[in-house]
Amino acid sequence: MAITLTTKAAERVKGFLANRGKGDGLRLGVKTTGCSGMAYVLEFVDSADTSDQMFESQGVKIFVDPKSLIYLDGTELDFTKEGLNEGFKFNNPNVKATCGCGESFNV
Protein backbone atom coordinates (compact mmCIF):
# COMPACT_ATOMS: atom_id res chain seq x y z
CA MET A 1 0.00 0.00 0.00
CA ALA A 2 1.05 3.58 -0.33
CA ILE A 3 -0.06 7.17 -0.01
CA THR A 4 -1.00 8.90 -3.28
CA LEU A 5 -2.03 12.30 -4.57
CA THR A 6 -4.59 13.08 -7.25
CA THR A 7 -3.30 15.08 -10.23
CA LYS A 8 -5.14 18.15 -8.97
CA ALA A 9 -3.70 17.88 -5.47
CA ALA A 10 -0.19 17.33 -6.85
CA GLU A 11 -0.44 20.46 -9.00
CA ARG A 12 -1.53 22.52 -6.02
CA VAL A 13 1.17 21.16 -3.74
CA LYS A 14 3.85 21.84 -6.37
CA GLY A 15 2.50 25.36 -6.75
CA PHE A 16 2.52 25.99 -3.01
CA LEU A 17 6.02 24.58 -2.63
CA ALA A 18 7.33 26.70 -5.49
CA ASN A 19 5.71 29.77 -4.00
CA ARG A 20 7.14 29.02 -0.59
CA GLY A 21 10.62 28.77 -2.12
CA LYS A 22 11.73 25.82 0.01
CA GLY A 23 10.57 22.47 1.35
CA ASP A 24 11.17 18.84 0.41
CA GLY A 25 7.55 17.81 0.20
CA LEU A 26 4.42 17.19 2.14
CA ARG A 27 3.84 15.61 5.54
CA LEU A 28 0.67 13.64 6.19
CA GLY A 29 -0.11 12.51 9.69
CA VAL A 30 -2.71 11.99 12.36
CA LYS A 31 -3.08 13.30 15.86
CA THR A 32 -5.37 12.20 18.65
CA THR A 33 -7.97 14.72 19.54
CA GLY A 34 -10.97 15.26 21.75
CA CYS A 35 -13.95 15.12 19.43
CA SER A 36 -13.96 11.69 17.80
CA GLY A 37 -10.55 10.10 17.99
CA MET A 38 -8.18 11.31 15.30
CA ALA A 39 -7.61 14.41 13.21
CA TYR A 40 -5.42 14.87 10.15
CA VAL A 41 -2.17 16.79 9.99
CA LEU A 42 -1.04 18.37 6.70
CA GLU A 43 2.27 20.23 6.68
CA PHE A 44 5.18 21.25 4.51
CA VAL A 45 8.40 19.34 5.20
CA ASP A 46 11.68 21.18 5.54
CA SER A 47 13.69 18.31 6.95
CA ALA A 48 12.42 14.77 7.18
CA ASP A 49 12.95 12.59 10.26
CA THR A 50 15.01 9.45 9.82
CA SER A 51 12.06 7.34 10.93
CA ASP A 52 9.74 8.83 8.28
CA GLN A 53 8.42 6.66 5.47
CA MET A 54 8.75 8.36 2.09
CA PHE A 55 6.36 7.93 -0.82
CA GLU A 56 6.48 9.60 -4.18
CA SER A 57 3.31 10.37 -6.11
CA GLN A 58 2.93 12.55 -9.22
CA GLY A 59 6.40 13.96 -8.60
CA VAL A 60 5.66 15.05 -5.01
CA LYS A 61 7.45 13.55 -2.05
CA ILE A 62 5.14 12.53 0.80
CA PHE A 63 6.50 11.89 4.29
CA VAL A 64 4.60 9.92 6.93
CA ASP A 65 5.82 9.00 10.40
CA PRO A 66 5.45 5.28 11.22
CA LYS A 67 2.80 5.89 13.89
CA SER A 68 0.53 7.76 11.52
CA LEU A 69 1.06 5.30 8.66
CA ILE A 70 -0.97 2.68 10.51
CA TYR A 71 -4.00 4.95 10.20
CA LEU A 72 -3.27 6.40 6.78
CA ASP A 73 -2.11 3.50 4.59
CA GLY A 74 -3.90 3.60 1.24
CA THR A 75 -4.98 7.21 1.59
CA GLU A 76 -5.42 9.38 -1.48
CA LEU A 77 -5.13 13.14 -1.02
CA ASP A 78 -7.39 15.25 -3.23
CA PHE A 79 -7.89 18.99 -3.76
CA THR A 80 -11.48 20.19 -4.10
CA LYS A 81 -13.55 23.34 -4.15
CA GLU A 82 -16.79 23.58 -2.19
CA GLY A 83 -18.48 26.91 -2.77
CA LEU A 84 -16.12 29.68 -1.74
CA ASN A 85 -14.01 27.31 0.31
CA GLU A 86 -11.24 25.23 -1.21
CA GLY A 87 -8.72 22.85 0.26
CA PHE A 88 -7.34 19.34 0.61
CA LYS A 89 -9.40 16.25 1.31
CA PHE A 90 -8.24 12.87 2.64
CA ASN A 91 -9.82 9.84 0.99
CA ASN A 92 -8.81 7.37 3.66
CA PRO A 93 -9.98 3.76 3.28
CA ASN A 94 -9.27 3.03 6.97
CA VAL A 95 -11.91 5.41 8.28
CA LYS A 96 -14.90 3.77 9.97
CA ALA A 97 -16.68 6.86 11.24
CA THR A 98 -16.29 10.62 11.25
CA CYS A 99 -17.66 13.13 13.72
CA GLY A 100 -20.34 15.61 12.75
CA CYS A 101 -18.05 18.46 11.80
CA GLY A 102 -15.83 16.13 9.78
CA GLU A 103 -12.62 17.29 11.45
CA SER A 104 -11.94 14.02 13.19
CA PHE A 105 -12.43 10.34 12.46
CA ASN A 106 -12.19 6.83 13.90
CA VAL A 107 -10.57 3.66 12.57
Binding site: V41, E43, N85, G87
Partner: peptide, 9 residues
Protein backbone atom coordinates in the same frame (compact mmCIF):
# COMPACT_ATOMS: atom_id res chain seq x y z
CA UNK B 1 -15.51 16.43 5.58
CA UNK B 2 -13.83 19.69 6.29
CA UNK B 3 -11.25 20.83 3.76
CA UNK B 4 -7.68 21.23 4.98
CA UNK B 5 -4.87 23.65 4.18
CA UNK B 6 -1.16 22.87 4.38
CA UNK B 7 0.52 24.25 7.49
CA UNK B 8 4.09 25.26 8.19
CA UNK B 9 6.13 22.43 9.81
Amino acid sequence: MALLQISEP
